[in-house]
């Protein structure tokens, strides 16, 4: 039986794209998943930056987030590839390395906490695939979607593969299968597994270079002729959505492709409206996309 979960929100979802947070709550409820809040959680902290600045700081903050969930006797559910990468890597290292666990607990002791290593860290995509499976999700869908989707896995969902064990990193299929459970078609496109260019502190420090990387993806996706981009990481989401506006401003190129987190896509397939799922709160506004969704209504919730 699936263990009970607590929802780790991270930074970008609650503080920039709350629609994804709302969509997650709606989907978890529809799926009948027992998932509580995780009050008092902080930044994971972001793996590409803080882990590389100072490992003890990264482990201390990550372990505190994990300990909050240990106290609730629940596994940690992440909805962001970065949070997933940070927390699963920290959790594994602390479980396997007694010396690191000891030194980390020296810090945690100062706030009256202790890392035990009693819970696991999950990502919503691998959780849905493992615990439900594409067929089961498909059966639960009430409003099959007639959409052509460009799927963006995001690097840290599958890599480093040694710590993930989710199959092929060059051409994975599990996420595509979940997308197609909603009725949508996951369209293949060149450089589908390419990085969005945001990670590792590149977006924050070298914005223009980071936008050149994502622009390459936009051009490939645009050529494929899709209705929207789907991802499972709010930092990729920010880069893919806000990045389109920045690419337009800096390079004069306009794509206007709507971007959805998987929970928003699934939410649509469960009959929720784009407004309930906060899809209209993206930077990129695309009326043609919203009109195409409306054709399916009225949906029975």
């Amino acid at each position: 039986m699936m263990k009970k979960l607590s929802l780790f929100l991270g930074c970008i979802i609650p503080n920039r794209y709350p629609g994804i947070e709302k969509a997650t709550y709606l989907c978890l409820e529809k799926l009948g998943i027992d998932c509580s809040d995780l009050p008092g959680a902080s930044c994971c902290p972001a793996p590409g930056v803080f882990r590389s600045f100072d490992k003890s700081t990264w482990l201390a903050l990550a372990s505190r987030n994990i300990v909050l969930s240990e106290e609730l006797e629940r596994d940690v559910l992440t909805i962001c590839n970065g949070c997933y990468g940070s927390l699963i890597d920290a959790n594994n290292e602390l479980k396997e390395n007694a010396a690191l666990k000891k030194s980390t607990n020296t810090h945690l002791e100062k706030i009256g906490k202790k890392f035990n290593g009693s819970v696991d860290v999950r990502h919503i995509v691998e959780l849905l695939y493992d615990e439900f499976g594409p067929e089961k999700i498909k059966e639960m869908v009430t409003t099959p979607l007639n959409l052509r989707v460009a799927l963006h896995y995001g690097c840290h969902l599958v890599k480093p593969s040694k710590e993930r064990q989710l199959g092929s990193v060059e051409k994975p299929t599990f996420f595509d299968e979940l997308v197609e459970s909603t009725g949508a078609e996951s369209v293949d496109y060149p450089d589908k597994m390419a990085c969005c260019g945001a990670g590792g502190g590149v977006r924050s420090a070298l914005l223009e270079k980071s936008l050149e990387m994502v622009n390459h993806k936009f051009s490939r996706i645009s050529d494929a002729g899709v209705d929207c981009i789907v991802n499972a990481c709010p930092f990729c989401h920010l880069q893919l959505d806000g990045g389109q506006a920045e690419v337009k401003e800096k390079f004069g190129l306009e794509y206007n492709i709507p971007v959805l987190h998987y929970t928003q896509l699934l939410g649509l397939a469960f009959g929720f409206s784009p407004e309930e799922l906060g899809i209209d709160l993206n930077v990129i506004k695309n009326d043609a996309f919203l009109a195409k969704l409306k054709l399916k209504e009225p949906a029975e919730n």
Binding site: N15, E21, L38, G40, A41, S56, T57, R64, H107, K110
Partner: peptide, 22 residues
């Protein structure tokens, strides 16, 4: 949100850890 933003005592804990790690 249900994070350190809503719980000042949780934010204080995070600050303690950051200081403890230097």
């Amino acid at each position: 949100p249900e994070t350190v933003h809503k719980y000042p005592e949780a934010l204080a804990d995070v600050k303690t850890l950051l200081e403890s790690c230097g």
